[in-house]
């Protein structure tokens, strides 16, 4: 059953805006309402088409009025944010993430027209630790509950969404736990990190990273919005990329810092506003995280188009990152050494 009126939160950011644009392009959907605290930037606004924008804070009861007034039957909650700087600090970010979701769910619970709720969550809920199994399935819990930041917010929000699902069994609730996004256009802490010419890492650690192309993320969200796919699903591209390997594929230089120097280094990067990594993201860069996506393929019925490596390469090419060490130079050096060896002989 196609939805009639869809409400998309977090529409001023990449995923929310592009999802709203995709839904607006479908004539079967009557109305698409985008909600955010700030208006979308011009480049995103252009793509939104006939989608309506409501400037509202999901933390106040106005959101209930929108949901009731427009007869919203499907809510897609994509406004979960990993970036404290965007909200002016960790406290405001938590407020926005957790309290915002509580308000949104309260409004949804009241609405009699609600049929479907889609939550964009994150694989960060599994944490990152040396005691992790190689791959997390949806039924696994993190080794240690996330102590703070985005992962803790996401875990709490998932808890509230589960509670909502119990109270409103007539609403199909889909939770998509998404791996880290990359893509030619999306801007995340990770894409900024790999855009640095010299990429700092922690000495002695090499994370296994699973990524997700932003287009695949949008496609999965769109499927969940259009049809009933209740349940919790891991969404990640097949395959794994090691952090060191990713840095080499992007043609960057890797600078391994001893763990004692990581603190001062991350303060430096925060002060220069280049990148701001939270402690749980730092753990991700040390230990990595891979999730099992069998359930996504078999039950949800979606296979990502890009593998992790392809998604990363698409990001590198799409950004036109000028490699510090390019494959051409490496191959040229290879043939030079070979020629020199032949000459000596």
């Amino acid at each position: 059953m196609a939805p009639q009126v869809v409400l998309v939160t977090g529409v001023s950011r990449f995923i929310g805006a592009h999802l709203a644009a995709r839904l607006a392009a479908d004539p079967d959907i009557e109305r698409v309402i985008g909600v955010d605290t700030v208006p979308p930037p011009p480049d995103l606004l252009r793509g939104l088409g006939r989608a309506e924008f409501v400037r509202a804070d999901i933390r106040n009861p106005l959101i209930a009025k929108v949901i009731r007034g427009a007869g919203v039957d499907t809510v897609v909650h994509t406004s979960l944010s990993a970036n404290p700087a965007q909200w002016g600090g960790r406290v405001a970010m938590k407020e926005m993430n957790v309290i915002g979701t509580m308000q949104l769910l309260a409004a949804c619970q009241r609405s009699s027209q609600m049929r479907r709720l889609v939550l964009k969550s994150t694989t960060a809920v599994y944490g990152s630790s040396p005691r992790d199994p190689a791959m997390f399935t949806e039924s696994m819990a993190p080794k240690a509950l996330p102590s703070g930041g985005y992962a803790k917010d996401a875990a709490e929000i998932e808890g509230y969404v589960r509670g909502f699902g119990r109270r409103r069994p007539d609403v199909a609730v889909t939770v998509l736990r998404m791996a880290n996004f990359v893509g030619p256009r999306i801007d995340t802490a990770l894409t900024r990190y790999f855009s640095l010419p010299v990429v700092p890492t922690v000495l002695g650690y090499d994370a296994r990273m699973q990524l997700l192309h932003s287009e695949d993320a949008l496609a999965a969200l769109e499927i969940a919005t259009r049809s009933d796919r209740p349940g919790v699903f891991n969404v990640g591209a097949p395959g794994v990329l090691l952090l060191s390997q990713a840095i080499r594929r992007a043609g960057r230089l890797q600078l391994s810092l001893p763990s004692a120097m990581v603190g001062p280094a991350s303060r430096f990067f925060r002060s220069t506003r280049l990148i701001d990594f939270t402690p749980d993201q730092m753990r991700f860069l040390n230990f990595g995280r891979v999730v099992d996506t069998d359930r996504l393929r078999d039950e949800f019925g979606f296979a990502p188009r890009w593998t992790t490596i392809q998604a990363f390469d698409d990001f590198v090419q799409g950004r036109q990152l000028r490699p510090v060490i390019s494959p051409e130079r490496v191959h040229a050096a290879e043939s030079r050494v070979l020629a020199a060896a032949r000459a000596i002989r």
Partner: peptide
Amino acid sequence: RLEELLAFLGRRLTGDYGVDEFG
């Protein structure tokens, strides 16, 4: 053998190799 070694180093330098989910 030198050629093989260089090709190996080249693959390592450009990150052109595969690892499985376990690393």
